[in-house]
Amino acid sequence: MTTSQNTEKKKSGVFGKILAWLLIIVFLAVGGLVYYKYYFVFGEGVKSGYLNFAVKKGNLFKTYEGKLIQEGLRSQSGTGVSNNEFEFSVESDSIFRILELNSGKYFDLHYKEYHGVLPWRGNTRYIVDEVINMK
């Protein structure tokens, strides 16, 4: 082998290593962003109110959705007064059955908040994962 062939192999080997590391870094960065956007729990808490509805709906992915009407009044954009509403999704069949059978009752619901919405998880960023209290 000549010196020019050795130099050419070293250059292509270095370029291949750089490209491989760059692809690994890009893959890890995209994976981290997807995790942060759709699977990282941004916040969690409890909301209380009267259950307005609980429905199963969707065109491709059938998801469980619901709405709580919270007590009190809130001014929106300074123009008037409206009810406080909390729209949420439910992943669990058993929790949905409890909500479905007790519409109109007062609930304390524990929820998790995500940054993004996944179509098979529900239509909202708020996912109810526990019924704490029902009156």
Rank of each mutant, 00 (worst) to 15 (best):
G49F: 08
K105M: 09
Y38E: 04
E91M: 11
T3A: 14
Y106R: 07
F88G: 02
Y36T: 08
L33P: 01
E85Q: 06
L60T: 15
S75Q: 08
L101P: 08
L28P: 10
E130W: 01
S103G: 13
I18C: 06
R74N: 02
T79V: 14
S75H: 08
N123W: 08
K135I: 09
S77I: 14
V41L: 07
L60C: 08
H110G: 06
G80A: 04
Y36R: 10
V81Y: 14
F15A: 12
G31W: 03
K56S: 09
Y114E: 06
S75N: 10
T124R: 04
Y50K: 14
Y64W: 00
Y38H: 03
S94H: 06
G45K: 00
K112L: 10
R97W: 02
E91N: 13
K47W: 02
G104N: 05
Y111A: 00
A29S: 14
D129F: 03
G45E: 07
K47L: 11
I95Q: 08
R125V: 15
H110P: 04
Y38Q: 05
V46H: 04
Y36F: 12
S48R: 03
G43Q: 14
R121V: 04
K9S: 07
Y39R: 04
A29W: 08
A29T: 13
S92R: 01
G43E: 15
V34S: 08
W21Y: 12
L22I: 05
A29C: 13
Q5N: 11
K67P: 10
E85A: 04
N133K: 15
F61T: 15
Y50N: 13
K10I: 13
L51A: 05
G31R: 06
L99D: 07
N123L: 11
E100F: 02
I25T: 15
E65M: 01
F40Q: 12
G78S: 01
A29G: 09
K67N: 15
K10Y: 12
G122I: 03
Y38M: 05
G104D: 02
F96V: 08
I24E: 07
